[in-house]
């Protein structure tokens, strides 16, 4: 298949792959957002995905999201596992009919020659118990390696997605390692290897991987984390319990501030999990508590303008 979008040269670095994805999706009409400024486990948690997938307002956004999975920390030693990594996330609502073609174009844009590789869409349904969300789609394989998740959102926070949003998630390190032919993530060139100051992934992240692995596994104070979890949970509830109108009579539903607390609770749960203090039975209960918050935030968001509520509803 001819790929008019495909650049003639192969990318040289991790950042070049990110930059190419940025310009590709910008050229396809997405708003290029910046990472959300909170600790999250995946790009899906960014309100630009979770909340914006709700309601009937059209939306198209692409962004990099630093993602943290404390239990995956390996002190920077494992070739593929990191407690902090990057996801590239695209969300388009309603999902366009040519989303698969758009996606394949993005692979070509980062230097994957679609005439030489075997790209496959293999069933993989997505479900997030913490977000009360699910969708159908695939994991995308390139020569047997999973390079992306492709999902048509059906429900978020217990609400049906109408219209349906199409979500693409690229695991950037893994994808870049594949494109650049690197076996150990730490050996990957972060910027152009011929730059005056060439930096590898290790130069940027090895030390932080070590520091966070130690903190996540051994040092993080579980009592504090637990207290923070409960604080975030309580604050989320308090925000949502507030009147829709403030003292000056303005109708302002605080869906986003409440959702920030939900994100916090979710990350604190992940940290507690990494510290090994959550038993199997408790695990379900914690996930259920976060889901309750996520659902309440979704309920609030759909009553806002961005969530598709009509202005007259907003007044009423």
């Amino acid at each position: 298949m001819a790929n008019p979008d495909a650049p003639k040269t192969a990318p040289k670095s991790f950042q070049e792959i990110i930059l190419r994805l940025m310009s590709y999706w910008a050229s396809k009409g997405c708003a290029v957002l910046q990472p959300y400024d909170m600790e999250v486990g995946a790009g899906t948690f960014h309100p630009a995905t979770t909340l914006r997938a709700l309601g009937d307002k059209p939306w198209a956004a692409a962004y990099v999201q630093p993602s943290r999975r404390p239990t995956d920390g390996r002190y920077g030693e494992n070739p593929n596992r990191l407690q902090h990594y990057y996801q590239y996330q695209v969300l388009i609502k309603p999902s366009p009919p040519d989303l698969q073609e758009l996606y394949l174009g993005s692979l070509a844009a980062i230097g994957i020659d679609l005439d030489l590789h075997d790209i496959r869409f293999v069933e993989d349904d997505w479900e997030s118990p913490t977000l009360g969300a699910w969708g159908l789609g695939w994991e995308v394989w390139c020569d047997g390696m999973e390079v992306s998740q492709f999902t048509y959102f059906q429900q978020v926070g217990g609400h049906d997605c109408k219209p349906v949003a199409g979500e693409l998630t690229y695991g950037l390190e893994r994808l870049a390692m594949y494109v650049l032919g690197i076996d150990h993530v730490m050996e990957m060139p972060y910027n152009d290897p011929s730059a005056p100051i060439a930096l590898s992934y290790a130069d940027v992240f090895r030390q932080t991987e070590q520091e966070y692995s130690r903190w996540n596994f051994d040092v993080a104070d579980t009592d504090t984390l637990l207290r923070h979890f409960e604080d975030a949970e309580a604050e989320c509830g308090r925000i949502l319990a507030s009147d829709d109108t403030d003292d000056a009579g303005r109708r302002i539903i605080m869906a986003h501030p409440a959702y920030d607390q939900c994100i916090k609770a979710s990350h604190l749960f992940n940290l507690l999990d990494a510290r090994g203090v959550i038993s199997v039975t408790e695990r379900q209960a914690y996930i259920g508590r976060v889901r309750t918050l996520a659902k309440a935030c979704a309920d609030a968001f759909v009553r806002t303008e961005a969530g598709g509520a009509q202005p007259d509803e907003a007044v009423a």
Partner: peptide, 12 residues
């Protein structure tokens, strides 16, 4: 599933 802005359901 549903897709796009429609209400028709199919496997994909």
């Amino acid at each position: 599933m549903r897709w796009g802005a429609g209400s028709l359901r199919w496997v994909r």
